[in-house]
Design a protein around this nucleic acid. Sequence first.
DNA 1: TGTATGCGTTATGTATACAATATAGGGGAA
DNA 2: TTCCCCTATATTGTATACATAACGCATACA
Lengths: 250, 250
Amino acid sequence: MAEREVDRSVSQTVKAQLALRDQILSGALRPGERISELQAVETTGASRTPVRMALVRLEEEGLLEAIPSGGFMVKAFSERDISDSIELRGTLEGLAARFAAERGVSARELEPLKECLAAIDELLRQVPISIEAFSSYVTLNARFHALLTELSRSPPLIRQIDRASALPFASPSGFVMAQSALPEAQQILIIGQDHHRIVIDAIENREGARAEAVMREHARLAVRNLRLALRNRTHLDLLPALALIKTATD
Amino acid sequence: MAEREVDRSVSQTVKAQLALRDQILSGALRPGERISELQAVETTGASRTPVRMALVRLEEEGLLEAIPSGGFMVKAFSERDISDSIELRGTLEGLAARFAAERGVSARELEPLKECLAAIDELLRQVPISIEAFSSYVTLNARFHALLTELSRSPPLIRQIDRASALPFASPSGFVMAQSALPEAQQILIIGQDHHRIVIDAIENREGARAEAVMREHARLAVRNLRLALRNRTHLDLLPALALIKTATD
DNA sequence: TGTATGCGTTATGTATACAATATAGGGGAA
DNA sequence: TTCCCCTATATTGTATACATAACGCATACA
């Protein structure tokens, strides 16, 4: 046991946090399950102190829940928790878009978003969209949302949006993955792209209320589609994060 | 050093967290200042492990910032950070009010809010308001906001609102304290009470959009008043949390 | 047979020792 | 005199030992 191979490129705490988050989101740890520190020490390769720090961070992140008698367990989410989180994120992104519009954004700052938009347009020209193109779409979409958030130039707001995206399915990538299971997936992506185009236009023309409204609409649609997607779970079995959603009977 | 008096009623981690937060908000630790773990160990009475856990929690809370080379420093906030945080909280509370209105709230659930409202009305009947009555007002106002948040019945949203209230001045009590320095303080409190009354009415009548709008207006007014209050800082010298706001020159 | 109590095991909470890195200060050279 | 480098010190990151509390199981008694 003297042999403990240590990766010094990142801190042990970060390594443990990433490993544990992965275990949670991949479903290796089931919701409600108590996380044993010793077990985590074995699976992550870090010692107890960094593991504990990682557990505290993951609790603050919302993926774990402290057990009153001590220790942590994996949090379970109801379907409503998930849809509320998406709507929550949409509301915050709406505020970000409004801030961007009201406070003014230079053409130069808007350029990366337009590039993103154009790149997604290019991808969606394929009918039906290929797996690789869809994967690129997920990345570009996440990038678009991140850039838009940045435009608000409000650190507290950016911070909160990041937090709101921590939950499974509440991140832009997460819920796109879920929606992709729907038969009308392509149509959904195209409408989403319309929202993206409109919000850029609104920001450019300094229409704060319009920018906000379209982002909220964007999220509301996502909520509706996630609900639909969860109806036919059979399409979703490939998504491990699904395990975090507790069923109605739980 | 064998003598270390230990308070076993609360965990060392919680004790350290409370003590450190108090030091930060009271201005004993200045923004930008690096927090020495050893020093924190001395002032809190806990050992390094719980102190480190507390530091991680306070970082997640937003009061501390991680230094890339290691350790933590007290975060400094711009005036805009503060006003954005208030608007942020208002937006989230607006969503909470809308959820409450749309999802329906029984008369029984609304009762505590109405009691709060009536109690505040009673206090405001005094002109001018006494110090003790103002102190009660602060408590009741915080209670009102907490109850309203609860009505959303959305754990993710409640969680986010709590987080958004962590910053100094962003909590209901915090910004009321700041506003109280204004000459027209009483008038402000009365208008705030109008908002409270309207949101209850809107929730009762299931008018989601109206409930949301009035809470956002509530926050927007608070932002305006905080700005005014910060103009004449002389009135605010009694507020230690003021030290966390970095001046324009910083 | 069911329940309660006590003991043993196991896990977490805390403290501290050790390792590694960042920082500051002093000395030397240009 | 100034700049750079080296060393010493202090502080953080990590590991582990110890203390304490919780949980489960078994046994005894009702």
